[in-house]
Design a protein around this nucleic acid. Sequence first.
DNA 1: TATAGTTGTCTATATCAATAGACAAATTTA
DNA 2: TAAATTTGTCTATTGATATAGACAACTATA
Lengths: 249, 249
Amino acid sequence: MIGRQEADSIERRSGVSLWRQIADRILQAIATGDFAENAALPPEVALAERYGVNRHTVRSAISALVQEGVLRAEQGRGTFVLSRKRLSYPIGARTRFSTGLQGQTSERHIVLLASSVEPASPRVAEGLGLARGAEVIRLETRGEADGRPVSRAAGWFDARRFAGIDKAMAETGSITASLARFGIDDYLRQSTVLSARHADAADLADLDLQPGAIVLVTVAVNVTPDGQPIQFSESRFPAERVELKLSAL
Amino acid sequence: MIGRQEADSIERRSGVSLWRQIADRILQAIATGDFAENAALPPEVALAERYGVNRHTVRSAISALVQEGVLRAEQGRGTFVLSRKRLSYPIGARTRFSTGLQGQTSERHIVLLASSVEPASPRVAEGLGLARGAEVIRLETRGEADGRPVSRAAGWFDARRFAGIDKAMAETGSITASLARFGIDDYLRQSTVLSARHADAADLADLDLQPGAIVLVTVAVNVTPDGQPIQFSESRFPAERVELKLSAL
DNA sequence: TATAGTTGTCTATATCAATAGACAAATTTA
DNA sequence: TAAATTTGTCTATTGATATAGACAACTATA
């Protein structure tokens, strides 16, 4: 053993408060199974010692997680982990919202939040192979599973080719079904770029997150089987509720 | 237009300080091209108004980014974006560290930070198809490109089959070359699960990050072409420096 | 029914984060 | 050169964050 210690400590003066860092750790410990579901968390004093902070700081972290519905505290008994397995969202060549989550949730659907027609930004134009400034339709959607928001996506389509896709989306609640109306029977994911950042105000509202949460961001281009780009999308997933499982692209 | 405004605002009482949130936004704006490289940022007063905070708060964010080497401030002239395109790290069936970053950096290599022999944790055992508690070798490595840390990984190998792989790794500096010594000419990525969280103390030290940074986390299993698991790994990438580009798995 | 263990509440204090305003210092532009 | 623009520094004040200690309220158990 060459030696190295796994620091379980916490950063001060970081711009991230200690209670939020500890809340993050607890979430992670739950996700990795260090804190089992339905079991009691270590008592507050033990956690305080473990993370090297005051008990009150641990309490702030716990109360945030209670607020989020991750933990339940019972006076005199302890603090318990509520079922919190993260959804595993598959990403692959034929990623579809509903089919991907089958078996993990009893119900899932997509809500159309907004739509608009706008000139293509440089990256959208590049992704769709359009002239910069060409008109595109933007659909803002939210994916929900068992009543909990699990994704928030913006999708852009060539306005000339897909005029009226906003109505189709509002009626069908499905991108796949909407594209079918335009003669697109099959489509593939051409490229996916992945990053992560703090949730912004819009994410917090649409995904029902607590401030300080982290979102996974995918930027993808969908194409027809013969390689013609049809959709450029940017999706955001709450990192505390969703993990992305990469399958065959 | 159904209507919806893109909130560019900031969350208060979130456990994440305003200056860090603003630093995040600036990094993101640079990554998406909203703030061009080598160009001047908007002046501090403009940024303060844009984000709805005091000028001093913007200054805190900027000084953190100057510290990180992302920005350079010049009195009387302005604040400038230093080259900061994120590295695009490919993930696919045959992901290899060096080959993947070719063309984006002039130099890249892997440093072996530590190694140890330990009993397999449940998830490692499951990933490698070993009995729970079977001995495994853990290699802790850091990937560097042009002198900057871009990844930090822990890899686990069956200790019986790969006895001495720690020495091979120390000598060759390459997982691929080390595995070749054990007769593994080719290997494939069987599964990859992706998540994100705040960097912990170890990440901060090893990846040379500022506190509050976000890391992308991949958990993967590598297998031989005939499906035999050989490596279980957990890798962390600094989200501000790296994005993951998914290619054919 | 005590007693130990746990969460909940309160007070007090120190430090960090954010706002506010004023002005200095350096650079560019008219 | 003068004015305008921009970053740098200073003081002061407020609110959020973190620590510390004490004790109440509730639960489980010896």
